[in-house]
Nucleic acid binder design. Structure first.
Lengths: 198, 198
DNA sequence: GATGTTTTTTGATATAGATCAATGAAAAAG
DNA sequence: CTTTTTCATTGATCTATATCAAAAAACATC
């Protein structure tokens, strides 16, 4: 147990570091915020959120990998967002609205993460002005990222999208299965396989 | 001139109404905010923002129509967002980052609008907690809208996307040219014409 | 209100990437 | 370790939508 506590303390330091990088928190605020985050260790292939459920948690991933995706009518997965070590994520649309999600969240590698629930998140938003700044920054980044993804999807060919990820975010190619990478690039596995083999 | 002032006063009322609907402003705050918005009357087909320019304004459209779009490598327009009467808009990615925009903004009908510049917007964000709430709400809505658009694009056929707009936002079909509507649906004019004729 | 410009319609053809199918490789389960 | 399931590769074919082209309609301009 002592070992585990030490480990969590270290992770809390990393979380504080991330928070401080995004907004101007003081130590007291950081303590308060960290006390809202609960540690969870989750096995590979666990589904954290299914379609139709309300997303009530916001995650800081200490180590591992988490993705959001949705299904088409034909049952094809479309991966929207992948988060690795020392980063944050959730199914934002459902988290914002507290309505049933059309997106899934699953865990692609054994993952250690910290979760804050919606109520605590919302209370921090009422109580701490710096949390408002933090959340504002998160929303701005999420919007801009999505805007860029959309542009890439409609302006680039499958091959160009692959090369774009290769150049800007090669970790996706290294750590994701072809199946997941293909769904992130909005192409089939077969097409990805053909692109890679050239 | 008196006539014009009366008109502007009326529009200010509408702007206040919109603001109050989004965040919990008091009358004093509304006055302060409205004093930052400058009235502009803009002729159809004016380009408000070109690719490469930094977007420094955020708009409330009183009457008329404004859209954001970008160009593909081949010079095809891709419309991302259309705003009509009594609503707000800007090229959000560039406005957020204050970096050169890849999106254009143009005016599709003779338009009366109110503009607030980035500096004033940012100062309000520092000074008024309710403005933070307002901006947070805007970002949440913009993210969720974009998320939904993306889902529609990758899960629906051209025809289904047309029908979806027909059912949820028919004003787009009524007020936009086929050319613009096609670029909003991410199809060619020819394809839209064929869809409509069935 | 005639003339040039831009949009819309319709048809013929092309193509990127999907789907289907079959085989081999890897990972998970027992 | 062996079996089963899932994933990756390769080839053949298909399809939704783009592109090209040319006429008709609508709009803007002199």
């Amino acid at each position: 147990m002592k070992h585990k506590n030490q480990q969590q303390a270290k992770v809390t330091q990393q979380l504080k570091y991330l928070l401080k990088n995004i907004a101007d928190f003081d130590e007291k605020e950081l303590e308060k915020i960290c006390s809202c985050f609960k540690f969870k260790s989750i096995k590979k292939n666990t589904v954290l959120l299914s379609e139709g459920e309300v997303c009530t948690e916001f995650y800081y991933i200490q180590k591992g990998c988490l993705r959001t995706y949705f299904l088409t009518r034909l049952g094809n997965e479309k991966t929207r967002f992948v988060t690795f070590d020392c980063s944050i994520g959730t199914a934002l649309t459902s988290f914002i609205s507290q309505k049933p999600s059309f997106e899934f969240i699953d865990v692609l590698e054994d993952t250690d993460l910290f979760a804050i629930n919606y109520t605590d998140f919302y209370n921090l938003n009422k109580e701490l002005i710096h949390w408002k700044d933090f959340y504002q920054r998160i929303l701005e980044m999420a919007y801009s990222f999505q805007n860029r993804s959309f542009e890439n999807l409609v302006t680039l060919t499958a091959k160009q999208r692959f090369e774009q990820v290769m150049n800007t975010n090669p970790i996706l190619i290294q750590r994701l299965s072809n199946k997941v990478l293909a769904s992130y690039l909005d192409i089939t596995q077969e097409t990805l396989s053909r692109i890679k083999s050239k």
